[in-house]
């Protein structure tokens, strides 16, 4: 059976959304320069969320750890998939579109919905991947304000080979990791 396929995002990382408690000044997740506490995250390790395996990014001072969406074109391992699974968070609630590019030249736009990262609940039916006990501010650590990363899915409805995806031109959306889940057709064929 074909396994889940992580999407390589390293070349697209462009935002520092994670900091350590002793060095919160470099955080840039949102306009307030809040950031997620690295101490509470599985940095640089694989994580299993809802049966999907993600490669959680590493983080460090001055090092980007997520993709702030600015229309990046991401090449994926070619294949037939049912879901593009994301570990993502919004600078407030986000609804936008991802463009899916297929080997036969077709393109589908699919909606991506991600809830707010700042002291929020899942309003789009996501699973909670991460909920921290504190929020990092530029000059202090704030207990009692939670930070969230959500596990969300984008459907791949076309039965064709997926080659690339275009992230939204929406800087409110941050993607930390992405994994493609193979289609049932492909699983059965294998």
């Amino acid at each position: 059976m074909r396994e889940q396929v992580p999407i390589e995002l390293a070349a697209h990382l462009n935002n520092a959304g994670i900091t350590q408690a002793g060095d919160t000044g470099g955080g840039r997740f949102n306009v307030w320069r809040n950031s997620l506490p690295g101490e509470e995250l599985p940095l640089g390790r694989p994580v299993d969320i809802g049966g999907v395996r993600f490669a959680f990014p590493a983080a460090g001072p001055g090092r980007p750890d997520n993709v702030r969406c600015e229309g990046q074109l991401v090449t994926v391992p070619p294949g037939r998939y049912d879901w593009c699974c994301l570990l993502a968070a919004g600078e407030r609630r986000v609804e936008d579109e991802v463009a899916l590019h297929f080997a036969d030249g077709s393109v589908d736009f699919e909606t991506v919905r991600v809830s707010d990262f700042w002291a929020a609940s899942a309003v789009f039916g996501e699973d909670e991947a991460v909920a921290t006990s504190a929020m990092h501010y530029p000059r202090h650590v704030q207990p009692g304000v939670t930070a969230h990363i959500w596990y969300q899915r984008v459907p791949v409805t076309r039965r064709a080979e997926l080659r690339r995806l275009r992230l939204p031109h929406n800087v409110a959306l941050h993607v930390f990791a992405a994994t493609l889940c193979p289609s049932r057709d492909e699983v059965n064929a294998a």
């Binding site: 949102n30 306009v31 919004g90 407030r92 609630r93 919905r113 929406n170 409110a172």
Partner: peptide, 26 residues
């Protein structure tokens, strides 16, 4: 959905205020 469209407007504007020309298209 209108509320969520406001996210994109607000956040794009807030981050883009240092360089209005760069954020004008989005």
């Amino acid at each position: 959905q209108v509320a969520h469209r406001w996210t994109a407007v607000r956040v794009t504007a807030a981050h883009g205020r240092a360089d209005p020309a760069a954020c004008a298209g989005p």
